[in-house]
């Protein structure tokens, strides 16, 4: 299910004094099974971009093609688009509304018109994927749960649609380190099933760890796209856009200036550890 943006443009309040271009001629192609990290400061167009990918917003120029479906075309079956692409919003737990966890997760599959048996199976599968015990949680009210559990219920509701492409807008925002690692491993496991992932994140460390490719948004333009190596090697350019690089990348730069002979492209803790051990001669297994 490839996703392609062609000259995708979105202007809010066109022809008014408040006119602003949120997306400016964005072009990209995403292949099946890719993990794309989307970074950019607040207001750079990230959220506007992902809302186009499942048709919540219509382009004011250019288009998005999802698996051959043209999202700018009014005759496109939006139900099919939303089955193909699942979108997990920021703070998705605010959107829980049903009386029980089971009903909330079943809401999407029900709208797909599946029969009762299939819906029940989808709910059980989704709950297993987010590690919520069916017997314990199915009949609870979502509002009795902790923040992290609520978020897992909200994500399960999207996974129950079995989307081929999963988009997450800052899925770890506001969570503690434990909750964050939990959500990230859940996303990683879903990706391992061969699904395409697009994840908006403010954490350069997370993006460096998981993404195959990174999109950098700036002032509505797709300013850079490339592998984590290609993107994080351009520390100056990222900083000029108000973005960080992983702390180990900054360290690698400083060490190189101080005469350390390090390999290029150090962006994760594991890479830095390996490089320093080979340089300083640490024991492999202490």
């Amino acid at each position: 299910m490839p996703v392609e943006a062609r000259e995708l443009t979105h202007t809010y309040n066109a022809d008014s004094p408040f006119e602003s271009t949120a997306l400016d001629k964005v072009n990209f192609k995403i292949q099946d099974g890719e993990f794309i990290g989307i970074i950019g400061h607040t207001g750079s167009g990230k959220s506007t971009l992902i809302q186009h990918l499942n048709g919540l917003l219509k382009p004011t120029g250019g288009t998005v093609i999802v698996n051959g479906m043209d999202l700018a075309d009014k005759s496109t079956n939006m139900k099919e688009v939303r089955r193909t692409i699942g979108l997990v919003f920021q703070y998705p737990e605010y959107q829980l509304f049903e009386e029980t966890v089971e009903k909330d997760i079943a809401f999407g599959p029900k709208n797909l018109g599946l029969d009762e048996k299939k819906i029940a199976a989808r709910v059980r599968d989704a709950m297993r994927l987010v590690d919520l015990d069916y017997a314990q949680f199915a009949n609870k009210s979502p509002f009795e749960l902790s923040g992290g559990q609520k978020r897992r219920v909200a994500i399960a509701g999207v996974l129950a649609m079995e989307p081929d492409i999963l988009i997450l807008d800052e899925p770890t925002a506001g969570l503690d380190p434990y909750g964050r690692d939990y959500i990230l491993s859940l996303v990683e496991n879903w990706h391992k099933l061969g699904r395409t992932i697009l994840m908006v994140s403010h954490s350069m460390d997370d993006v460096a760890r998981f993404a195959d490719r990174i999109f950098v948004m700036n002032h509505g333009r797709l300013e850079m796209q490339g592998t984590p190596d290609e993107v994080f090697d351009q520390e100056e350019r990222l900083r000029a856009m108000g973005l960080d690089v992983p702390a180990v990348t900054t360290l690698a730069g400083e060490l190189s200036r101080r005469g350390f002979d390090l390999p290029r492209h150090i962006h994760t803790m594991d890479e830095m550890e390996r490089a320093l051990l080979s340089l300083l001669g640490g024991k492999e297994h202490a």
Partner: peptide
């Protein structure tokens, strides 16, 4: 279940491999 700052984590990993990192480096 808490994080440690990245440079502290790195120091910890190096020590685990027998490299004698002094003190507790907190930043780059």
């Amino acid at each position: 279940g808490l994080d440690v700052p990245p440079m502290t984590e790195l120091a910890h990993r190096l020590r685990a491999h027998g490299i004698d990192v002094h003190g507790a480096p907190m930043n780059v």
